Simulated scan of single mutants.
Amino acid sequence: MFTGLISDIGRVERIDTQGDLRRMRVASGYKPESIALGASIACNGPCLTVVASGGLNEGSWFDVDIGAETLARTTASAWRVGTPLNLERSLKIGDELGGHIVTGHVDGVADILAVDPFDGMSRFSIQAPDKLARFIAEKGSIALDGTSLTVNSVDGAVLSVLLIPHSLAVTTWGERRAGDRLNLEVDLMARYAARLSYFAPTESAAI
Protein backbone atom coordinates (compact mmCIF):
# COMPACT_ATOMS: atom_id res chain seq x y z
CA MET A 1 0.00 0.00 0.00
CA PHE A 2 1.25 3.48 -0.93
CA THR A 3 0.20 7.13 -0.70
CA GLY A 4 1.37 8.52 -4.05
CA LEU A 5 3.93 10.81 -2.37
CA ILE A 6 7.23 10.31 -4.20
CA SER A 7 10.23 9.89 -1.89
CA ASP A 8 13.04 9.59 -4.46
CA ILE A 9 13.81 9.65 -8.18
CA GLY A 10 15.57 6.46 -9.19
CA ARG A 11 17.22 5.58 -12.47
CA VAL A 12 17.37 2.32 -14.41
CA GLU A 13 20.97 1.09 -14.32
CA ARG A 14 20.73 -2.32 -15.95
CA ILE A 15 18.23 -4.56 -17.74
CA ASP A 16 18.54 -8.33 -18.14
CA THR A 17 15.96 -10.19 -20.22
CA GLN A 18 15.17 -13.88 -19.95
CA GLY A 19 12.20 -14.84 -22.07
CA ASP A 20 9.16 -12.91 -20.83
CA LEU A 21 10.92 -11.85 -17.64
CA ARG A 22 12.96 -8.68 -17.21
CA ARG A 23 15.19 -8.01 -14.24
CA MET A 24 15.92 -4.33 -13.78
CA ARG A 25 18.48 -2.70 -11.52
CA VAL A 26 17.44 0.68 -10.16
CA ALA A 27 19.82 3.19 -8.55
CA SER A 28 18.30 5.16 -5.68
CA GLY A 29 19.15 7.49 -2.83
CA TYR A 30 17.75 5.10 -0.22
CA LYS A 31 20.11 3.77 2.43
CA PRO A 32 21.11 0.22 1.44
CA GLU A 33 20.44 -1.15 4.92
CA SER A 34 16.86 0.13 4.73
CA ILE A 35 15.96 -2.03 1.71
CA ALA A 36 14.87 -5.53 2.73
CA LEU A 37 14.73 -8.51 0.39
CA GLY A 38 11.10 -8.92 -0.62
CA ALA A 39 10.22 -5.29 0.11
CA SER A 40 7.69 -3.55 -2.12
CA ILE A 41 8.76 -0.38 -3.93
CA ALA A 42 6.50 1.48 -6.35
CA CYS A 43 8.45 2.36 -9.50
CA ASN A 44 6.58 4.88 -11.68
CA GLY A 45 3.39 3.42 -10.25
CA PRO A 46 3.66 -0.39 -10.41
CA CYS A 47 4.38 -2.11 -7.11
CA LEU A 48 7.54 -4.21 -7.63
CA THR A 49 9.31 -6.66 -5.32
CA VAL A 50 12.98 -6.25 -4.38
CA VAL A 51 14.90 -9.44 -5.23
CA ALA A 52 18.40 -8.11 -4.48
CA SER A 53 20.00 -4.89 -3.23
CA GLY A 54 23.29 -3.29 -2.28
CA GLY A 55 25.21 -0.06 -1.78
CA LEU A 56 26.02 2.32 -4.61
CA ASN A 57 28.02 5.54 -4.12
CA GLU A 58 26.05 7.63 -1.59
CA GLY A 59 22.89 5.58 -2.08
CA SER A 60 21.89 2.10 -3.13
CA TRP A 61 20.73 -0.16 -5.91
CA PHE A 62 17.94 -2.72 -5.94
CA ASP A 63 16.82 -5.33 -8.46
CA VAL A 64 13.20 -6.04 -9.37
CA ASP A 65 11.71 -8.73 -11.59
CA ILE A 66 9.05 -7.54 -14.04
CA GLY A 67 6.78 -10.23 -15.46
CA ALA A 68 4.85 -10.43 -18.71
CA GLU A 69 1.59 -9.09 -17.23
CA THR A 70 3.24 -5.93 -15.89
CA LEU A 71 5.16 -5.41 -19.12
CA ALA A 72 1.93 -5.70 -21.11
CA ARG A 73 -0.19 -3.40 -18.93
CA THR A 74 2.24 -0.62 -17.94
CA THR A 75 4.97 1.56 -19.43
CA ALA A 76 7.65 -0.75 -17.97
CA SER A 77 8.27 -2.33 -21.38
CA ALA A 78 9.53 1.06 -22.60
CA TRP A 79 11.98 1.64 -19.73
CA ARG A 80 15.61 1.73 -20.81
CA VAL A 81 18.95 2.20 -19.09
CA GLY A 82 18.88 5.79 -17.87
CA THR A 83 15.08 6.04 -17.55
CA PRO A 84 14.18 8.07 -14.42
CA LEU A 85 11.56 6.51 -12.13
CA ASN A 86 9.36 7.95 -9.40
CA LEU A 87 9.99 5.81 -6.31
CA GLU A 88 7.91 5.29 -3.19
CA ARG A 89 8.46 2.89 -0.31
CA SER A 90 5.46 0.96 1.01
CA LEU A 91 3.35 2.60 3.70
CA LYS A 92 4.03 1.74 7.35
CA ILE A 93 1.47 1.84 10.13
CA GLY A 94 1.74 5.29 11.69
CA ASP A 95 3.04 7.02 8.56
CA GLU A 96 1.35 10.24 7.49
CA LEU A 97 -1.21 9.61 4.75
CA GLY A 98 -0.63 12.82 2.84
CA GLY A 99 -1.79 11.66 -0.59
CA HIS A 100 -4.47 9.01 -1.11
CA ILE A 101 -4.58 5.22 -0.89
CA VAL A 102 -2.61 3.79 -3.81
CA THR A 103 -2.19 0.05 -4.37
CA GLY A 104 0.50 0.04 -7.03
CA HIS A 105 -1.79 -1.95 -9.34
CA VAL A 106 -1.88 -0.04 -12.62
CA ASP A 107 -5.26 0.12 -14.39
CA GLY A 108 -4.06 1.42 -17.74
CA VAL A 109 -1.71 3.68 -19.67
CA ALA A 110 -2.55 7.33 -20.36
CA ASP A 111 -1.06 9.80 -22.84
CA ILE A 112 0.00 13.40 -22.26
CA LEU A 113 -1.78 15.55 -24.84
CA ALA A 114 -0.38 18.96 -23.87
CA VAL A 115 1.74 20.71 -21.26
CA ASP A 116 0.96 24.32 -20.33
CA PRO A 117 3.70 25.87 -18.12
CA PHE A 118 2.94 29.09 -16.24
CA ASP A 119 4.29 30.83 -13.12
CA GLY A 120 6.63 27.94 -12.37
CA MET A 121 3.77 25.46 -12.51
CA SER A 122 2.57 23.19 -15.32
CA ARG A 123 -0.91 22.07 -16.30
CA PHE A 124 -1.04 18.71 -18.05
CA SER A 125 -3.85 17.60 -20.34
CA ILE A 126 -4.05 13.81 -20.33
CA GLN A 127 -5.96 11.25 -22.37
CA ALA A 128 -7.04 8.30 -20.23
CA PRO A 129 -8.26 4.99 -21.65
CA ASP A 130 -11.98 5.26 -22.46
CA LYS A 131 -12.85 2.30 -20.22
CA LEU A 132 -11.46 4.15 -17.18
CA ALA A 133 -13.27 7.46 -17.75
CA ARG A 134 -16.16 6.55 -15.43
CA PHE A 135 -13.75 6.21 -12.49
CA ILE A 136 -12.32 9.73 -12.90
CA ALA A 137 -14.07 12.69 -11.28
CA GLU A 138 -13.31 16.39 -11.01
CA LYS A 139 -11.57 17.11 -7.66
CA GLY A 140 -11.10 13.38 -7.18
CA SER A 141 -7.77 11.63 -6.71
CA ILE A 142 -5.73 9.81 -9.33
CA ALA A 143 -2.25 8.25 -9.41
CA LEU A 144 -0.16 9.00 -12.50
CA ASP A 145 3.31 7.43 -12.68
CA GLY A 146 2.87 6.74 -8.98
CA THR A 147 2.17 10.38 -8.09
CA SER A 148 -0.97 11.24 -6.14
CA LEU A 149 -2.69 14.10 -7.95
CA THR A 150 -6.01 15.94 -7.83
CA VAL A 151 -8.07 15.94 -11.01
CA ASN A 152 -8.72 19.56 -11.97
CA SER A 153 -11.15 18.92 -14.81
CA VAL A 154 -12.65 16.07 -16.81
CA ASP A 155 -14.11 16.06 -20.32
CA GLY A 156 -14.97 12.53 -21.34
CA ALA A 157 -11.73 10.59 -21.01
CA VAL A 158 -9.55 13.73 -21.06
CA LEU A 159 -8.47 15.09 -17.68
CA SER A 160 -6.16 17.83 -16.46
CA VAL A 161 -3.84 17.97 -13.46
CA LEU A 162 -1.74 20.82 -12.09
CA LEU A 163 1.83 20.30 -10.84
CA ILE A 164 3.28 22.91 -8.48
CA PRO A 165 7.00 23.83 -8.63
CA HIS A 166 7.91 21.51 -5.73
CA SER A 167 6.26 18.50 -7.37
CA LEU A 168 7.94 19.25 -10.69
CA ALA A 169 11.32 19.40 -8.94
CA VAL A 170 11.12 16.22 -6.82
CA THR A 171 9.46 13.89 -9.36
CA THR A 172 9.95 13.00 -13.02
CA TRP A 173 7.12 15.37 -14.01
CA GLY A 174 9.55 18.19 -14.72
CA GLU A 175 10.84 16.18 -17.68
CA ARG A 176 7.43 15.19 -19.05
CA ARG A 177 6.40 16.33 -22.52
CA ALA A 178 3.41 15.93 -24.83
CA GLY A 179 3.39 12.41 -26.25
CA ASP A 180 4.80 10.78 -23.12
CA ARG A 181 2.91 7.83 -21.66
CA LEU A 182 1.94 7.46 -18.00
CA ASN A 183 0.90 4.61 -15.73
CA LEU A 184 -2.59 5.36 -14.42
CA GLU A 185 -4.25 3.98 -11.30
CA VAL A 186 -7.80 5.09 -10.54
CA ASP A 187 -8.93 5.89 -7.02
CA LEU A 188 -9.57 2.72 -5.02
CA MET A 189 -12.89 3.98 -3.64
CA ALA A 190 -14.12 4.90 -7.11
CA ARG A 191 -13.30 1.42 -8.37
CA TYR A 192 -15.23 -0.35 -5.62
CA ALA A 193 -18.15 2.11 -5.70
CA ALA A 194 -18.57 1.40 -9.42
CA ARG A 195 -18.39 -2.34 -8.80
CA LEU A 196 -20.99 -2.19 -6.03
CA SER A 197 -23.37 -0.08 -8.12
CA TYR A 198 -23.05 -2.58 -10.97
CA PHE A 199 -24.29 -5.39 -8.72
CA ALA A 200 -26.83 -3.31 -6.78
CA PRO A 201 -30.33 -4.86 -7.00
CA THR A 202 -32.90 -2.94 -9.01
CA GLU A 203 -36.06 -1.70 -7.33
CA SER A 204 -38.14 -4.39 -9.06
CA ALA A 205 -35.75 -7.11 -7.98
CA ALA A 206 -35.93 -5.98 -4.37
CA ILE A 207 -39.76 -6.21 -4.24
Rank of each mutant, 00 (worst) to 15 (best):
S53Y: 04
S53H: 15
S53G: 06
G55M: 09
L56V: 13
N57I: 13
E58L: 12
E58P: 06
D63T: 07
D63K: 02
D65M: 06
I66T: 04
I66A: 06
A68H: 12
E69R: 11
T70A: 09
A72M: 04
A72T: 02
R73K: 15
A76R: 02
S77C: 07
R80N: 13
V81P: 07
G82P: 05
L85R: 09
L85W: 06
L85Q: 00
N86Q: 04
N86A: 05
L87N: 05
L87S: 04
E88Y: 02
L91N: 10
K92S: 11
L97Y: 08
G98F: 09
G98C: 13
H100M: 03
T103D: 05
G104M: 10
H105K: 10
H105Q: 12
H105M: 04
V106R: 04
D107N: 11
A110D: 04
I112M: 05
I112S: 03
I112C: 00
A114P: 03
A114S: 12
V115Q: 03
D119Y: 09
G120W: 06
G120I: 06
M121D: 10
F124W: 02
F124Y: 14
S125C: 11
I126H: 03
P129G: 12
P129Y: 03
L132R: 11
L132Q: 09
L132M: 09
L132W: 01
A133P: 00
A133Q: 05
F135I: 00
I136N: 01
A137C: 12
K139A: 01
G140W: 02
L149I: 11
V151P: 05
N152S: 05
A157R: 14
V161K: 03
V161Y: 01
L163M: 14
L163F: 08
I164Y: 01
P165E: 01
P165L: 11
H166S: 03
S167G: 04
A169N: 14
V170L: 03
T171V: 04
T171H: 06
T172D: 07
T172M: 05
W173N: 12
E175D: 15
E175T: 14
R176K: 15
A178E: 09
